[in-house]
């Protein structure tokens, strides 16, 4: 096996694209918060290269904790996370930074640095690759800048490079978030509620964009999402998390009423399932979008 693509600073950029069988392997992952809350109770799961996984579950089930344990924004209590051959849970701070740049992350509410320009936000995806003085002087290597422009074009924001991030609309901001994650040349995408504050139409556009990009790059992704219909429409595999335990793991079409009840508890799921099945004609989406606009106008 070739060595892990832990590139040293001088020639970082393309950290070996084809052979990165960046298989994510999570083994009996446990997280107990200081308050004593058990957010994760021994979760084990494997994600092969190129697979897009939807992670669903009720609020407080530990979805957010699970994906944050993968890049150790949340420190797991027990268990291991392997990215390829690399055991992420045993890394020193320095090596952890190296590992983090291989893992792109897309956030709920975008989490852009609002007062920086769009370009600075995208280039911040290179921070793990460049020395401090370069990032401080905003003198990123030409290929990083070129890549950033290309990514902005790819997500349809080529014109907006020098705008401040807070001047963009919600959907545009999330596109910048996607570009920032891709600027890292990631081998894995972690996506935390990407559509939480977007309207239904934009939500579907963003999900479609994420999915297309994952296909283009054979990039595996874990998408933490509470909209079951979106998850079913856009992912190849669904994980259901309930109270810190994995209670469902299967393709989207196996997510029947019994499975939903297992994940979320007792509820009449027929209406939602019906909507999901007639979803392709897009009509209900336009309808709910109009509803949303009306609601917003009612507010102002």
């Amino acid at each position: 096996m070739p060595a892990r693509p832990v590139a040293r600073p001088p020639m970082p950029a393309r950290a070996a694209l084809p052979e990165i069988a960046a298989l994510l392997k999570i083994e009996s992952l446990t997280k107990t918060y200081k308050t004593g809350d058990k957010a994760l109770k021994g979760v084990s799961v494997e994600v092969p290269s190129g697979q897009v996984v939807g992670l669903i579950g009720p609020s407080g089930a530990g979805k957010s904790t699970l994906i944050r344990c993968i890049n150790r924004l949340v420190e797991p209590t027990e268990g291991t996370v392997r990215l390829g051959e690399l055991d992420v849970t045993r890394l020193s701070r320095r090596d952890l930074r190296r590992a983090r740049r291989r893992i792109g992350m897309i956030f709920q509410e975008y989490a852009l640095v609002e007062r920086l320009t769009v370009m600075e936000n995208v280039l911040s995806g290179r921070l793990g690759y460049v020395p401090f003085w370069r990032s401080f002087m905003r003198k990123f290597p030409p290929d990083s800048v070129e890549k950033a422009f290309a990514l902005l074009d790819r997500v349809g924001l080529g014109e907006h490079a020098d705008k401040r991030a807070d001047a963009l609309s919600g959907g545009q901001r999330q596109r910048v978030g996607i570009a920032r994650a891709l600027e890292q040349d990631p081998e894995l995408l972690l996506v935390d509620e990407p559509t939480a504050s977007l309207d239904p139409k934009t939500s579907r556009q963003i999900m479609r964009l994420i999915l297309e990009i994952c296909r283009e790059r054979d990039l595996p992704a874990i998408i933490n999402i509470h909209d079951v219909v979106l998850a079913q429409d856009f992912t190849q595999r669904i994980l259901g998390l309930r109270a810190g335990e994995l209670v469902f793991d299967g393709p989207p079409d196996q997510l029947d009423e019994k499975a939903l009840t297992e994940i979320y508890g007792e509820e009449d799921w027929t209406a939602m399932r019906r909507r999901a099945s007639e979803d392709e004609d897009e009509e209900p989406m336009h309808h709910s979008e109009r509803e949303l606009v009306e609601r917003l106008e009612g507010l102002s």
């Binding site: 930074r97 983090r100 852009l112 609002e114 921070l127």
Partner: peptide, 25 residues
């Protein structure tokens, strides 16, 4: 803190974190 978290997730060092996520705010 979400902006800080996002910059930290890119593999930024502490100084870069201060420069990119804290200073603009």
């Amino acid at each position: 803190s979400s902006q800080v978290e996002a910059v930290r997730a890119t593999g930024a060092s502490w100084w870069q974190l201060v420069n990119y996520a804290v200073q603009p705010q």
